[in-house]
């Protein structure tokens, strides 16, 4: 079992490396690719500091671009939100020389947080929107980071509550129905929510609403979210003028007389 978690960590590192290996790689749709390298160059040029926030941004972009390009990733908890957790844990452990055994411990803890979310709320965008995917991933990453910073289980759970509260209500609105726009950049920005939440928790800042109750809120928000905003590509970014233009250029056209933004292949 523990060997399998080490293997999981190895695949996470490979997915980051793959995303940084070719700045010209593009996904099948042509919508994504190259931004992990762009962000890394910006750090390497000295324009911004090489700290946990910025390195995690690069790593989240890298994993998510690898995913969009049909590379090998670890769903954490889903493929669409696979960038956040490895980015935060690996960026922090590199900068602070944390050994792999401890990172593996952190992964087990984040799995426990994820199971609690799955049990009370959901990890599915189709069911509860992106709060269930990037929101859950950020909560898990925050908990894992608090642990790596020396926090107790309570501090980890508190960090997860802080992160999840910040992303409650986040909609799932993928352009052309593909796991690319806005998913990849949501993975990148999701890392900052996770890191800030872990830092606040370690500073002693408590979530007024406890983790268990945040999960109930998440489920309730998901239940009342219209179907158009739950992975159907019928709302939000997917039906903006640009989103629709991209979908059309990929050979999808809007159904005649249907204003909802449902696409069919031409």
């Amino acid at each position: 079992m523990r060997t399998h978690m080490h293997e999981t960590l190895r695949v996470m590192r490979e997915a980051i490396a793959a995303g940084l290996s070719d700045k010209d790689a593009r996904s099948h749709s042509g919508m994504s690719g190259g931004n992990a390298c762009r962000m890394k160059s910006f750090i390497d040029s000295g324009s911004i500091e090489d700290n946990v926030y910025n390195r995690a941004t690069v790593y989240a972009l890298a994993t998510s671009e690898t995913n969009a390009n049909m590379g090998k990733i670890v769903a954490a908890p889903t493929a669409g939100a696979s960038g956040i957790l490895p980015a935060v844990l690996i960026a922090f452990s590199e900068l602070n020389r944390v050994d792999d055994e401890r990172v593996v411990d952190a992964l087990y803890l984040t799995g426990d947080i994820g199971m609690k979310i799955a049990k009370t709320a959901s990890l599915s965008g189709a069911e509860c929107g992106c709060q269930a995917e990037c929101g859950s991933a950020a909560a898990m990453a925050a908990a894992g980071l608090a642990f790596l910073m020396g926090g107790t289980y309570e501090q980890s759970e508190n960090a997860a509550a802080l992160a999840l509260k910040s992303l409650l209500g986040l909609v799932c609105d993928p352009v052309a129905g593909l796991v690319e726009v806005p998913c990849i950049k949501r993975n990148a920005t999701g890392t900052s929510v996770a890191i800030t939440s872990a830092n606040m928790s370690m500073a002693g800042i408590e979530s007024v609403i406890p983790f268990d109750e945040v999960l109930v809120a998440m489920k309730q928000v998901g239940r009342t979210m219209p179907e158009q905003l739950r992975e159907t590509a019928q709302g939000g970014c997917a039906v903006t003028a640009t989103g629709m233009r991209i979908a059309r250029s990929l050979g999808l056209k809007q159904r005649r007389g249907d204003e909802s933004g449902t696409f069919v292949r031409e």
Partner: peptide
Amino acid sequence: VFDIIGPIMIGPS
């Protein structure tokens, strides 16, 4: 735990 941190898979979905 490996249903949450996993599966190891080819992306994107």
